[in-house]
C-alpha cells in the first residue's frame, strides 16, 4: 500500500492537468452539441457516437489528402450535419422512435467511417508533417485554440437560440402540442436540431483527431455518455455557483466547463493508476449517479418510503 502511494507523484499530476484541460475543452464542445438534443429537444440522440468518429475520419483523410486543417474541419461539420439529418428523417418521416433512429445511424456510420478511412481502423496525422489547428504537443496553444472555439460557439448558440427559429426549436422540445398549435413545423425543428447537434459533435471529433494526431474507428464509443456527463456536471456546478442568476449564456458556458471538469476527473483517476480499460465503467457510474441525484433528492422530500421511516402518519 505504501509502495502504491509512494509511486504517486503530485508533480506528475500537476503536469498532466493542462493536457486534461485541453482535451476536456474538446469534449466540452461536443457536450454543447449534445445539449441541443438532450436539453432543448428532449431527445437522447445516440447518433453522436458515430458522428464524433465521422468528424475525426473526414478531418484526418482530408488533411492526409493535403487539405488545410480548417477546410477539412468544415467538411467534417457538413458530414455531421448530414448524419443528424439522416437520424432526423428516420425519426420524423419514417416514424422510428428518436433513440432507435440514432442507434441505426450510429451503427451504419461504423461501416461508413471505415470506408472513409480506406478500410483501416486507424489513420495517423502527424503534427510533424501537417499543419494542424491544435495538437497535444503544444498544450498551451491547444488550450487557447480550444477556448477560442468554445467562446465563438457558445456565443453563436446564445444568439441562435434567441432568434425566432431557435426559439421555435426550444418550444418544440418544451411543448410539441403547443408548438403545432402556434404553427411551428415540429418535424422540421427536430431535424434541424438533430443536424446542428451532430454538426457540432463532428467538429469536436475533427478537433480531437488533430489533437491526438490520429483518427480511430472506436474513438467515438461512449461519446454520448461523456457528453451527458459534461452537460450534467455543468448544470450541477452552475446551479451551485450561480443558482438562479444563471442565464442561457451561463448554462452554455458551464456545459463546456462540465467537459473540462469531467476530463480533469479522468486525469486524476488515471493518475491514481486505475486501469484505463475500466474508464468506461467509471464514466458510466459517474453519469448514472449524476442522473439519479435530482430524482433521489426529490424522493427524499416526497416519497412513500418517507412514511415507512416515520412509522405511520408522516404528515409532518
Amino acid at each position: 500500500m505504501s509502495a502504491y502511494f509512494a509511486s504517486l507523484s503530485l508533480l506528475k499530476l500537476l503536469r498532466s492537468l493542462p493536457g486534461g484541460v485541453s482535451q476536456g475543452l474538446i469534449w466540452g464542445l461536443m457536450a454543447l452539441g449534445i445539449y441541443i438534443t438532450f436539453r432543448l429537444l428532449d431527445v437522447a440522440d445516440l447518433t453522436v457516437d458515430g458522428s464524433f468518429t465521422l468528424g475525426a475520419a473526414v478531418t484526418a483523410m482530408l488533411i492526409l489528402a493535403g487539405w488545410p486543417a480548417w477546410a477539412a474541419l468544415l467538411i467534417a461539420v457538413l458530414a455531421g450535419l448530414l448524419a443528424g439529418l439522416v437520424t432526423g428523417l428516420l425519426h420524423t418521416k419514417l416514424g422510428i422512435p428518436a433513440i432507435l433512429a440514432g442507434i441505426l445511424t450510429q451503427l451504419s456510420l461504423y461501416s461508413i467511417n471505415l470506408r472513409i478511412m480506406g478500410m483501416s481502423a486507424n489513420k495517423a496525422i502527424s503534427a510533424d508533417k501537417y499543419r494542424l489547428l491544435l495538437t497535444s504537443r503544444h498544450i498551451p496553444a491547444a488550450i487557447l485554440t480550444g477556448a477560442a472555439i468554445a467562446l465563438v460557439l457558445v456565443s453563436v448558440f446564445y444568439w441562435y437560440f434567441g432568434t425566432e427559429q431557435g426559439s421555435a426549436i426550444r418550444a418544440t422540445g418544451n411543448n410539441p402540442a403547443m408548438s403545432r398549435a402556434l404553427g411551428i413545423n415540429i418535424d422540421r425543428m427536430k431535424v434541424l436540431g438533430l443536424s446542428l447537434s451532430n454538426g457540432v459533435v463532428a467538429l469536436s471529433g475533427g478537433l480531437m483527431a488533430q489533437y491526438q494526431g490520429f483518427a480511430d474507428i472506436n474513438m467515438g464509443r461512449g461519446a454520448i455518455v461523456i457528453g451527458l456527463a459534461a452537460v450534467i456536471i455543468g448544470e450541477v456546478i452552475g446551479d451551485a455557483l450561480l443558482g438562479k442568476h444563471r442565464n442561457f449564456y451561463g448554462t452554455l458556458s458551464f456545459t463546456v466547463l462540465g467537459g473540462v471538469l469531467y476530463y480533469l476527473v479522468i486525469v486524476v483517476v488515471l493518475w491514481l493508476k486505475l486501469n484505463s480499460n475500466d474508464l468506461k465503467l467509471f464514466t458510466a457510474v459517474v453519469v448514472a449517479l449524476f442522473l439519479a441525484a435530482p430524482y433521489l433528492r426529490g424522493q427524499r422530500k416526497s416519497s412513500f418510503a418517507r412514511f415507512k421511516r416515520k412509522g405511520g402518519d408522516g404528515c409532518a
Binding site: Y160, G162, T163, E164, Q165, G166, S167, A168, A171, S179, L182, G183, I184
Partner: peptide, 19 residues
C-alpha cells in the same frame, strides 16, 4: 418568450430576435 412565440403564429420564423 411564450407571448412572442404566439405573436408569430403561422409566420415564417427566421433569424430575427425571438423577442
Amino acid at each position: 418568450e411564450n407571448l412572442a412565440l404566439a405573436a408569430r403564429r403561422g409566420q415564417r420564423r427566421g433569424l430575427k430576435w425571438g423577442v
